[in-house]
Design a protein around this nucleic acid. Structure first.
Lengths: 341, 341
DNA sequence: GTTGGCACTCTCGTCGTGTGAGTGCCAACC
DNA sequence: GGTTGGCACTCACACGACGAGAGTGCCAAC
């Protein structure tokens, strides 16, 4: 579809004014008149055409025009084709501090910054353990019959806990077993460590078979558990200030989606491996997000380390700023991870 | 203050009916009449007396009565003096699964259960690292110039990260230093590990002074960082269904408090070391929570391990159920921690 | 393709009005 | 003294009518 210039200009102006004011935009709106430099009658006919094509609607006869989801889509595609305005980038760089710290905090920080800068809800969804590769295992004697078991992954994630040992295990055995398991599993994707695989690879890694079994059981349980997503969500409160969520039912719907991390994971499943991804209103597969737009980008290097950052806001979103912010934070996260790797 | 029986009965009935219906309760309300077994005129005079004493108000002349914060307080003190009804306990036990898993997940689970059962917002606030006691330190060689540094606490918390080492550190040195530091710091409160203290205790724990300095610097930073609270908050969405939070401004206020964990920490600072703690409306020190009641209880054994669980809801809260739920979940958490200790 | 003019439509805010819920007071009763 | 029925009084709120104003669509002229 190719819009003539006048119609494009009208669409842009209507969308941007509506984003600013949250009100329907009429053909006699001073901003439109000034910005487009033509009469209201001309604007009217352009608007009528845009409405025929499904880019605008009006809530009722004597109200101004409002973009449809499709209208936002066309607008977004048009606007994002060009480079992001430097002003947005600068504003964001000015607002945020720098992102630093270890992998655990990173998510919290990023979510905080994103919602601070955009005033929408932000989500940082680190890839689960299952997406990462095994780095090393350490078994550390910790009192009688107890050991501290720690797994590290290539992304620097740490997962550990105290496990019970069969009686009479020597420290040397722990050390030897740690070494052997690390050696054999290093570099494997954790998702690939099925029960059979574990059995096969480390089934007889130590002369103390009871010990091997205890460690195997723990590994199996703990690695499986790592599949549950654990997201950082912040700034849901900002959504309540948006008129589209002033009805409690509307607000509840979004908040539910944001609090159910497994649901959220589905919503973000479609994010590609690079670039900024946008889902506008009805483009979202999740019914709960039909009133929202989601702007998301992956971070990290390859499949391995990272995850996804996203913003959830009304379809009437400041897309330019949202995209710039998501992009920026994803870049900073990637950088921080690469530094610590 | 000693209320005569009739007034007590009226207060209870009004509070409970109002909690149920969220509407002002009039003197001719069928439930009151039936429950109290007297005429509406009698109820009226009791209500007038209760209003004089500041336990009830009415929003306007021709509306029914509504409890004041103080009215709720008197009600709560009256009701909680007796034992919790078995029905509540049973209902809760039926609704929840069991709480299990490692310390990291426990909080999430507990928060989930609490908000599921009560339909209010729930908070699980584990005591920061600073409140715990140091158990052990492990330094594990991890590639050239790198080590995995892990601290454990008596509560089973694990904190670790990769640190950079000065060049040419031998594995034996790492091991020796780990042993020495563990020995010297074991059993100390982490809050007490100030810079001077660290200097004094482990200043020259190894012949490799550069290594000692690197580890010291990391310890200082990481232990200080541990003071930032990291809470599990869930079910904020439920609050939106309560009529007192249907105004976006009211909802924003609570959500802000729930999302600002440092703020939340202040709100929960007054929770005593045992028993269930209740703050009703204006009893909350935080202005953002003036429309809310908070029901909280500590969990864990002594100062050491645990933390605080809490429910945040409207002052028009189902207190019996809330108290039973908080109590129950706190007990289960304590139990789970004790099992794993 | 653009413009000014004009009649038409429909929402929204305002203003009365009446209804009903709930109260307070009082006199009578137990 | 506590309890009761009766009764007048007071407001909030729902309802309906009305007018103003915003915005549209169409048309003829440029």
């Amino acid at each position: 579809m190719r819009l003539e210039d006048r119609k494009r200009a009208v669409l842009c102006a209507v969308v941007e004014e509506h984003i600013r004011s949250a009100e329907p935009v009429g053909s006699e709106h001073p901003v439109l008149l000034e910005h487009l430099g033509c009469s209201s009658a001309t604007i009217r006919s352009a608007m009528a055409a845009l409405e025929d094509e499904g880019l605008l609607t009006h809530p009722h006869t004597s109200a101004g025009r409002v973009p449809t989801d499709y209208g936002y889509r066309v607008y977004v595609d048009m606007v994002l084709a060009g480079p992001l305005p430097a002003s947005e980038r600068q504003a964001i760089r000015r607002d945020v501090g720098h992102v630093a710290g270890d992998a655990t905090d990173l998510g919290d920080q990023a979510a905080h910054i994103l919602s601070l800068v955009t005033r929408y809800a932000s989500v940082v969804a680190p890839a689960g353990l299952r997406q990462q590769t095994f780095d090393s295992l350490h078994l550390l004697a910790q009192g009688p019959g107890r050991a501290l078991a720690v797994i590290t992954t290539s992304a620097g994630t740490l997962q550990g806990r105290l496990i019970d040992l069969p009686p009479g295990v020597a420290a040397a055995d722990l050390e030897q077993l740690s070494r052997v398991i690390t050696q054999r599993l290093h570099g494997m994707r954790i998702a690939d460590l099925t029960q059979e695989r574990l059995e096969q690879v480390i089934g007889e890694a130590s002369r103390d078979q009871q010990l091997v079994d205890a460690v195997k059981a723990w590994l199996r349980r703990d690695l499986a558990r790592g599949s549950r997503p654990r997201f950082h969500v912040e700034g849901a409160r900002h959504l309540l200030n948006e008129p589209e969520f002033s009805r409690p039912e509307a607000a509840t719907q979004v908040l539910s989606a944001l609090e159910e991390h497994t649901v959220l994971a589905q919503a973000l499943a479609a994010v590609p491996e690079q670039g900024v991804w946008i889902a506008i209103g009805s483009e979202n597969r999740l019914a709960e997000l039909r009133a929202c737009s989601v702007v998301a980008a992956p971070y990290g290097v390859g499949h391995d380390a990272g995850g996804t950052v996203a913003i959830v806001g009304p379809t009437r979103m400041r897309y330019r700023r949202a995209v710039a912010a998501v992009q920026y934070v994803a870049d900073r996260l990637t950088e921080a991870l690469r530094r610590s790797a």
